[in-house]
Design a protein around this nucleic acid. Sequence first.
DNA 1: TCACATTTGATGTTACGACATCTATTATAA
DNA 2: TTATAATAGATGTCGTAACATCAAATGTGA
Lengths: 191, 191
Amino acid sequence: MQRAPTIQIGTVAPKTATVNDPAQPGALGPARPLAPSELRYLVVATQREGNRTFARAVGELGLTPSHAEILVVLEEFGPMSLRDLGEMIVCEAGSPSRIVDTLVQRGLLERGVDPNDRRAIVITLTAEGRGKLPALRRIEHEMDGATADQLTPTQQVMVAGILRGFLAGTETGEALERRFARRPKATPRTR
Amino acid sequence: MQRAPTIQIGTVAPKTATVNDPAQPGALGPARPLAPSELRYLVVATQREGNRTFARAVGELGLTPSHAEILVVLEEFGPMSLRDLGEMIVCEAGSPSRIVDTLVQRGLLERGVDPNDRRAIVITLTAEGRGKLPALRRIEHEMDGATADQLTPTQQVMVAGILRGFLAGTETGEALERRFARRPKATPRTR
DNA sequence: TCACATTTGATGTTACGACATCTATTATAA
DNA sequence: TTATAATAGATGTCGTAACATCAAATGTGA
């Protein structure tokens, strides 16, 4: 309602209202005390907004946010088993069999066999899958730009640090740690 | 993996690892620079963890997080139309017809007619629905306590302020504003 | 070796989230 | 009035999240 109802497809929607002035690090509205559960709902709402924007952007490529996450991880870390993949992503905690299956059927991924373990599969990007990555990288960059329009670098680092602490010891927290802590460009993981 | 695999049902799961020391306001790990999209995934993961914990807790009452949100809002603000309800909640943006329908079928809500507008319905808590609220309040309190174990009040207010700024102008942001800004205890909204 | 547990991945189920579409009712304007 | 738009709500669809169960392959210890 307050926001422009239509977003320009292909780019990340610009915000029409900006409460925080990015020129002032740490600047925000008056520090209202927190109502019960308010923080949790703020996190929920933030995730929803981010996911919807991301979904519209990658939807242009015929992908969903989960698809995008998997493609990016596979390009970043190289081929891996379903189990290892599950330990690197936030979507589909546990085994992402079905999402991988969808991507295999669309020709973006390949299911290979592990010669050392006939239970395991080795998931590899196909050429077509790899072809999605420049656009995905561009979208990620645009999303980060939209975040930068709303939050100062100081605020971003502050929130990230707090959330990392909150997630310490959780499965998804460990997944993000594996994924973002050290960034081994195209280093296939083995276990 | 790092976390205890079983949680005691009926209470919020305790964290086994604590990186941040709540005794030191603002204390966090080293301020690692942000990788692309990392902040978004941190928010996603945080929302997932919170939602799973909340889901297990309210699951004891036979409810889902969405159910809980609606019951709490209706008790807080009194009977309202589906449209107004949709503008107060984060779950099911748009019209929560189906979730309300489920709750009506379970006898927790009642669908009434609006004498002034035959299109509209008036959603009211039944006695049984109202009976869930003490337990829901207790669960919310436990969730807040679990948050307090992980984040200092300073950190909480900081994150909340930043997220409010980020959500300014969005539908869900406005919904939370309506819901948490001023807290009119049991004041039925009319429009 | 053999019984048993563990691991890997697939699959079934329920409930949401987001989007689109549809009907009934009400509002608006020529 | 009457045509048209706007609104309230219901409903259909697709993909995901979380949970559970299952089969096949592998690991383990007696």
